[in-house]
Design a protein around this nucleic acid. Sequence first.
DNA 1: CGGAACTCACTCCTCAGACAAGTAGATAGG
DNA 2: CCTATCTACTTGTCTGAGGAGTGAGTTCCG
Lengths: 221, 221
Amino acid sequence: MQVRREPLADQAAELLLTRIRAGEWQLGQKLPGETTLAPQLGVGRSTLREAIRQLAGRGVLASRQGAGVFVTALDVPEDWDLVLRRADIVSVIEARTAIEAEAAALAAVRRTPTELRAIGRALAARARRRPDVEEHVDADMAFHRAVVVAAHNPVLVDLFDSFVPRSRIAMVEMLRLGTAADHAADHTAHDLLHRAIADRDADLAARLSRTHLTSLKESLT
Amino acid sequence: MQVRREPLADQAAELLLTRIRAGEWQLGQKLPGETTLAPQLGVGRSTLREAIRQLAGRGVLASRQGAGVFVTALDVPEDWDLVLRRADIVSVIEARTAIEAEAAALAAVRRTPTELRAIGRALAARARRRPDVEEHVDADMAFHRAVVVAAHNPVLVDLFDSFVPRSRIAMVEMLRLGTAADHAADHTAHDLLHRAIADRDADLAARLSRTHLTSLKESLT
DNA sequence: CGGAACTCACTCCTCAGACAAGTAGATAGG
DNA sequence: CCTATCTACTTGTCTGAGGAGTGAGTTCCG
C-alpha cells in the first residue's frame, strides 16, 4: 500500500466537510472568515480558498464577496460516478470482478443464439491488431459488455457501464506505459470465455472472468 | 434584472467547462499548464487554480502534481438511485449476489479482529426475535453491511448501500405477506458465514453468500 | 547493445503580502 | 423614525517566491 501524498487543499476540504456534517455549522450559516479559518486549519489562505472552491463545486458551500462563506447543503447527493472517478483503481477492478463474474455465469445460462453471435463478433473485432491503444481498449470493452448484456440483467449492464470510463483510463494508461501486454495469452483467455458461454458452462465462465480481471488488477499494482 | 457581478474564478470555470464540452481536450488528456492557460483566459494564476478546483469538485478535472491537469469527465451524468428503484427486484438481488459474494471472499482475507467482532455483534443482534418486521430487516442489513465493510473496498460498500433501500422494501413486503420464513435455518446460514470469515475461508464465504441470496431470490419469484 | 541511474526542464503545490471590491452593522443627521 | 454615510470586516484578485513531484532525455556501466 503506497502512501499517497494528498494535496493540503484536498485534506482541508475533507476536514471541512466532516466538520460540516458533524453539524458544527448549520445549514445557511456563515463559516468563520478565511483569515480565521486558515490558521486554525494550519494552511495558508490561498490553500483554504481552493478547498472552499472545491466544496463549492460540489454544492456544499457558496461564498458571497463581502459577506462570507455559507453552508448550502449538508447532505451531498453522493454522485455515484464521482465516487468511481475518485476511487482507487484496485477497488474499481475488484468491483468489476464481482459484476462480470456473476454476469458471465448468468450469460452462460441465458444467452440467446443472437447474443452469442454478438459476443463472437466482438471477439473477432478485438483480435484485430490496432496501432491505436485507445481503439484496442474500446474493442476490449465492447467484448466484455456483450457478455454482460447476454446476462439479461439491466442492473448489471448499468453497473458495468458506470465502470467503463474509469477502467478505460486506467487501461489506456497501462498499455501506454509499456506494461508488457501479452496479446496472444490475452486473446486465448477471451476465446475460452466465449466458448464457455457457448457451452453453457456457468461455473467455468465465472472462473475465467475472475482470473482474467485478477491478473489485470495485479498488473496495475 | 441587475447585472450580477460574477467572480472571475466562476466565469473561468464555466468557460473551461464549455471548452471541454466542445471537445477541445479529449477525455484523459492534459490541459495546458497554469502559466499558459491563465494569461490565455486573462486571469491570474491563483484565480485559474480556483476555477480548476471548482471543476475538480464536480469531478470534471483532476490534477496531479508534477504531471498536469487532466480531463476526467465531459459531463456529470444520471441518477443511479432512480435506475434501481425502477429495476426488477430479481435483477437487484442478482447484482447484490455479485457484490456480496465478492465482498465476503475479500472480507475473509482482509478482516481485522475488530471488524470480525463487529460482524459477530451484528449477528447476535440479528438473532434476537422482534415483533416488528422492519426492525428485523434492518438488523439483517446491518449484518450484511458489516461483512462488506470488512472487505476494505469503498466501492463495494457504496454499491451495497445503494442497494439497501430497494432490497429493504422487497424484504419487508415478503415477510409481511407471510412467506414462510424459516428463522432457524436462516440463522444457521448467517452463523456459518460468520465462521467462514473468522476461519479466513474465502471460498466458503463466497459460496455461503451466494446460496443465501439465491434462495432469497427464489422465494421472491 | 541493453538497462539502470542520473539530470533537468516542466508541472502543480503552498505560502505571504498587497490592494480592490463588496457587505452589513454602527453612527450621525434630518 | 427614517435615511445617508461611515467603517470594520469579508471575499476577490494578482504577484512573486520557493518546494516538491513527474517524466523524458542522457549518460554510464556491464
